[in-house]
Design a protein around this nucleic acid. Structure first.
Lengths: 192, 192
DNA sequence: CCATGATCGAACCGATCGGTACGATCACGC
DNA sequence: GCGTGATCGTACCGATCGGTTCGATCATGG
């Protein structure tokens, strides 16, 4: 693995640290809820260092959101994959993973959807739209495996349920939301 | 009706104008996306006048969100009411109203949910939470009328579907989202 | 052992923000 | 016709924001 040349620390490691801390802080406090100066204080990095790795705050936001989207997508598809070939089991596994997420104390809703609600900038909305596309692909695949007559429609319905459950869990508490969402998802998959 | 005393214009009318314009601009551009000065320019009012009617920008935001919540809630319950007593017809009417909303060119998602995603302030989140409570009450009532064995659970599922459909319609376009949501809602209501 | 480059800390910049203050209008009720 | 009060336009305030710059530090590779 190529390592830093002629420098004290690995720049890639610094960049990863910035991304990780920014992901956490932006999620907890909102994209506009934390300034660059405070963010640098939390990360333990100077502004010059941050701006060496990211041209602008918006660029950092983009990178954070892209990373988040990849992680969440992988996490959900891993959950589906580990449930075996049965489509109902895959769907149940996805919503079980969601239920677990909802009950984490740091849960604050979907970072991508929240970001799109804050930054009306088209770049952010595009990232969020692609994020939903990935979820839709996963759910449509499950519907197709279940031999649904209209897998695309069912995938959309499951996507609505997923996003709605995330909203309701954030605003109304996670109590039974995960269970209800799971039940509804399986009903939508196996109906008709 | 008591009218303004010793003044040129009716202060209540001015206040209503501020509220109306602020509702529109905040919805289009986000709560933090428009400053007080620009807002006053759009409304056609001076800062002093605005601050005579609302102590602070946050107070204005609160009033806007409360008003919005009341309007949306009344709009949905009117749709249900005009559909007659049949619960399936009432639910269909609610989601028909949503579908119409989604295809309006000014549609930008739920203003309350968007606000909660922006302002993490507990006051805003409380308003949004109450807003979802009202929707939940409406949907649970429909489930109860339909003699669902677990109307509270079904109401929650329908609420998730409603909020999720709003998110997806905002991010993915309104194309068939309204239809799919309506179909899924009726399926959840009449299943088992 | 010295040049390199990543980093720090702090000062600094211009812009914008929410909010206030002031003098000038202007229409109504007394 | 005169005072009252709502309004306007503008200037202003302190704070914060995103972003830049600069001198100092320090570990490493040549």
């Amino acid at each position: 693995m190529p390592v830093a040349k002629g420098s004290t620390v690995d720049p890639a490691r610094t960049r990863a640290a910035i991304l990780g801390a920014a992901t956490r802080v932006f999620y907890e406090r909102g994209l506009d809820g934390v300034g660059v100066a405070e963010l640098c204080g939390v990360i333990g990095v100077s502004k010059e260092t941050l701006y060496r790795h990211f041209a602008t705050k918006d660029a950092l936001v983009d990178a954070v959101l892209e990373l988040r989207s990849e992680r969440v997508t992988r996490w959900l598809s891993d959950a589906a994959e580990s449930a075996g070939p049965d489509p109902a089991a895959r769907l149940a596994a996805v919503f079980d993973a969601l239920r677990q997420w909802y009950s984490e104390p740091t849960f604050r809703g979907c970072a991508l959807v929240n970001a799109a609600a804050q930054h009306h900038a088209p770049r952010v909305r595009a990232i969020t739209s692609r994020h939903l596309d990935k979820h839709l692909a996963l759910l449509t695949d499950i519907a197709r495996r279940a031999a649904c007559p209209a897998p695309v429609a069912v995938g959309r319905q499951l996507l609505m349920l997923l996003e709605g459950a995330t909203i309701v869990a954030d605003q109304h508490g996670a109590d039974a939301v995960g269970d209800h969402a799971r039940t509804a998802a399986l009903a939508l998959l196996t109906r008709s």
